[in-house]
């Protein structure tokens, strides 16, 4: 296998690994990652929205 073909194959293998497990990218353990931060914030927003709808329902939908 030529050097060029070897490089292409190695790159293809690396891409496949990343495609299978994107969450496996290493993140510093001591702080929240970019993605984790936004996911946490989205969960908080969704939860707030659900509570708000529940409150509206209990108040008779007004």
């Amino acid at each position: 296998m030529s050097e060029d073909a070897q490089q292409r194959k190695e790159r293809a293998d690396r891409l496949r690994k990343m495609m299978r497990r994107p969450e496996a990218k290493p993140e510093p353990p001591e702080r929240e990652s970019l993605k984790e931060g936004i996911e946490r914030r989205m969960r908080e927003l969704d939860e707030a929205e659900r509570e708000s709808r529940r409150d509206d329902g209990e108040a008779g939908g007004t």
């Binding site: 990218k25 993140e27 510093p28 702080r31 929240e32 990652s33 970019l34 993605k35 984790e36 931060g37 936004i38 996911e39 914030r41 989205m42 927003l45």
Partner: peptide, 20 residues
């Protein structure tokens, strides 16, 4: 409108936005 909050951590801005 929806608020995502402050960005932190590694990765590009677009990767984070796309994930959400």
């Amino acid at each position: 409108f929806r608020k995502l909050g402050k960005l932190s951590g590694s990765g590009s801005i677009r990767e984070a936005i796309d994930a959400q």
